[in-house]
Design a protein around this nucleic acid. Structure first.
Lengths: 138, 138
DNA sequence: GTCTTAAATAAGAACGAGTCTTATTTGAAA
DNA sequence: TTTCAAATAAGACTCGTTCTTATTTAAGAC
């Protein structure tokens, strides 16, 4: 994604634009592998070697509050991030730390239908995601 | 669950029975709050103050390999564990670290049906779990 | 363009959940 | 009861993440 588009993403939401935020958002949009913070720091520093580690963690938290980024639920020991905000699901490798997107409108419709007629006592649903665990075969 | 039943769980699977394993399994069966390892260590040490932290982590890994326990995918900074092995789903609080079970046969059937007719290229599914995120209201 | 200031960042120390190491103990088969 | 591979205790260590403090900066006001 071009820099000017990334700037628009921030500006349109009334968020302050900084070179560091642009770099982090660019790194997130440039990959679909749901990177860990450490991986993201690597990517960011290819073009911006001076950006501080703590800054990137702080920016990630800020993006999460702002709704630009979501944490990916996982069983690993490091947090994973996802900047693809449309409703989608994930495939989890049981062998490796690979996590891929799974997107299907029919599935979304089925889930929508199911939860429309069935409310959960004492719980207000805000988001639903399927975790599909298994093995990638090449 | 009684001690003799817990011993049976281990014996029936051909697993070595130790006081430490009994204590950890007992702690897991005594709560449905999907405890972190640290929380579990607290529970275990109420009755067995001498059991080492590393031992409990090692036992948890062993139980996971043995299929007695599953890791719960989460966005938090600590791993959570679940000894309820029937197919079920989870409710996640967006405010707190609360995670509750959600169990419904109709939902399982719907998912079964959906994935029966739709295979995912290059992926062999082994387990499917719904993450329902939202807010608990009292 | 310049000023102003709250907010953002740099640098690295600190924290803590989870892992590793080594000596000791033990479950359970023979 | 003997034997020994496996399990445990104790605590040092790792490293992903957070915190602290001084410095810099984005962007609104003038």
């Amino acid at each position: 994604m071009s820099n000017s588009k990334i700037i628009s993403v921030l500006k349109d939401r009334g968020l302050k634009v900084t070179p560091q935020r642009i770099a982090v958002l660019d790194a997130l949009y440039s990959t679909n592998e749901h990177p860990s913070a450490e991986k993201l720091i690597d990517i960011v520093r290819r073009n911006n070697p001076h950006i501080a580690k703590g800054t990137i963690y702080k920016i990630l938290d800020f993006f999460i509050e702002s709704g630009l980024v979501k944490k990916v639920h996982s069983a690993g020991d490091r947090m994973r991030y996802d900047a693809f905000t449309e409703r989608h699901h994930h495939l989890y490798s049981l062998d490796t730390d690979r996590i891929e997107d799974y997107h299907d409108e029919e599935l979304n419709a089925i889930l929508e239908e199911y939860f429309k007629k069935r409310s959960i006592p004492h719980f207000r649903i805000e988001d639903i995601q399927l975790h599909i665990k298994g093995k990638f075969i090449e």
